[in-house]
Design a protein around this nucleic acid. Sequence first.
DNA 1: ATGATCGATGTAAACCTTTACATTGAGGTT
DNA 2: AACCTCAATGTAAAGGTTTACATCGATCAT
Lengths: 344, 344
Amino acid sequence: MSEPVDKPATIEDVAKLAGVSIATVSRALRSPEKVAESTRKKVTAAIARTGYTANAMAQNLRMQRSKMVLVLASSIADPNFAGLLTGLEKAANDRGYGVLIGNTEGTTGLEQNYLRFLSTGMADGLVLLTGHIPVAGEPQTPLTTLPPIVATERPVSNREISYVGVDDVAACKMATEYLISLGHRKITFISGGPSDIRSDLRHSGYRQGLRESPEDLRDWRVEGDGTSESGRAAVERLFIKDDLPTAFFCFNDNTAIGVISALQLRGYRVPEDFSVLGFDDIPFASNFSPGLTTIRQPRHHIGEKAMNILLNRLANRLLETRSHLLHGDLIVRESCAGVSRQRK
Amino acid sequence: MSEPVDKPATIEDVAKLAGVSIATVSRALRSPEKVAESTRKKVTAAIARTGYTANAMAQNLRMQRSKMVLVLASSIADPNFAGLLTGLEKAANDRGYGVLIGNTEGTTGLEQNYLRFLSTGMADGLVLLTGHIPVAGEPQTPLTTLPPIVATERPVSNREISYVGVDDVAACKMATEYLISLGHRKITFISGGPSDIRSDLRHSGYRQGLRESPEDLRDWRVEGDGTSESGRAAVERLFIKDDLPTAFFCFNDNTAIGVISALQLRGYRVPEDFSVLGFDDIPFASNFSPGLTTIRQPRHHIGEKAMNILLNRLANRLLETRSHLLHGDLIVRESCAGVSRQRK
DNA sequence: ATGATCGATGTAAACCTTTACATTGAGGTT
DNA sequence: AACCTCAATGTAAAGGTTTACATCGATCAT
């Protein structure tokens, strides 16, 4: 139905065909109530005939925005990333925004590079999954020049930035209580590394859980870094010391998987000999054997909520910059059991 | 070092400060060789003082491009997606392009929606992971209006579109020969569903592998759909028929995982009782127990190569629209073994 | 000295919108 | 009949670049 165009039709083509001015065409599209029914019809017809689509560049230039959001992540391969992105992307798309991906791989060099999208105006807002405000080249106060930001996946220490994520503390407290209710009295927390703030949050939830017990349970933290290798290594260290818990509460599912395979490699069985609890409920948690008992992050919701907060800010519906902590569910599968016939 | 700006500096501010025209400033940036050393210095100084960054919208409008590429995927959560995206993203970023994500969830509605990035000129090129050319609203020939495209992850039946991916046929032939070399004579191929072209490619590689054998081996295909559930289901069906192979060659690792857990659930051991081979080498393949023997997709390279092909096309370095098939390595872990003490 | 050549710079158009402001004319009020 | 109001439309500026073309001197050959 469209004309044999080589160059895409412009608003001017439409105006000419409809016999009106370009202003009227623009109005017919952006604020139809301002244009008479009859002319609106003519314009619509002309648009259909020309196959006109407004040039986004021209619009953006004129309106000083890009309808684009930059998502900065330190690792695209992170098992949480896909779910989060799905939510972010859906919310953005629903509101006419596009999602631009920046994979920093944890390096500030790449991080810097992606800031070009902000400084050149290619993106209106920023979703931070890195856990820190991107460093500008010059050591100047960056917050003033940065666009609206929302953090997710990893909270940012700066209080000015909204964070959307699971309530690590509450979830870990609950999970710890669950382990205690199963009879466990010696529970090791395997951390996610010193640089990850969430590790401290989860550890603190674990401690709160311990304190709920009438007995005085040992706060027992060993260091990991969130990889399955670090889970394996932690187990090995504990075996060498010959100081073993009855349950492992792991910073995340990856670590839990490492822990379990290390235990299995030594001939122990999970959950018969040891209980292991993870965090995240990565897609693989249910396929693992034993099925991982873990805390589910509502990744999709987190993503959607984070994006909506950001877009509301962009739309000037000024919002409090608060943290929004979502509830994490305990998903009970097979990797945790009662302590009854356990060796220690 | 930068002035107290509310509005970002424009090229005009720089020009004024440097005492030259805006054309000279533009030239100093885009084609420095055209401007005298002395003025270039003045301009550079002025840029530093104003903290000027060229407005991308204005540039894009003027130059009729966006330096942005749309990546259309049917599922962001696909285990291959992250690795692919990492490669795509890296190559794009290296060449100053941005990557825009479109998650179609397999629905044409969303697919349509993302096409707005193309029709409005927000994206210059398209990376297709969906396996088909997006359908335009009207039943018109879309290829003429679509920008340069490259397909990856799933080949597109249309011959005009370059595809970058692993050589499914060769890899599966090799893997099948490997199973045969282990002594397997009854090998079931579990497909990835009728709608997935790759399923046929891999099946055909498997058949070629069978034919290499001096014996006349049975081409034995059962249907799956690429999920671990379908792997489980396939195993159950075979048990009901009481017609069992000694090895399973699965369309992908997900299926293989389903197959293995179904076998284990029935009390069999892998690889002692059955061998299972996957495809993809998803991040989890090595953490699974038993470690998955599988074919590794060089996801990162595929992504980079695909993006480079697309960007070359965009840069008018006209390239043949050919398929680029990369080699897939057989990763031998524990899930396949000799047939010796197998039950059947 | 004169003109040609060429490098460096400036002028202005073009890219395509949106929107403030001006204009027009119809309908209503006095 | 003169005036006012208001809805509908048009005119033109603005948004910030890039680049073809024009201009200006200086250098060089004659």
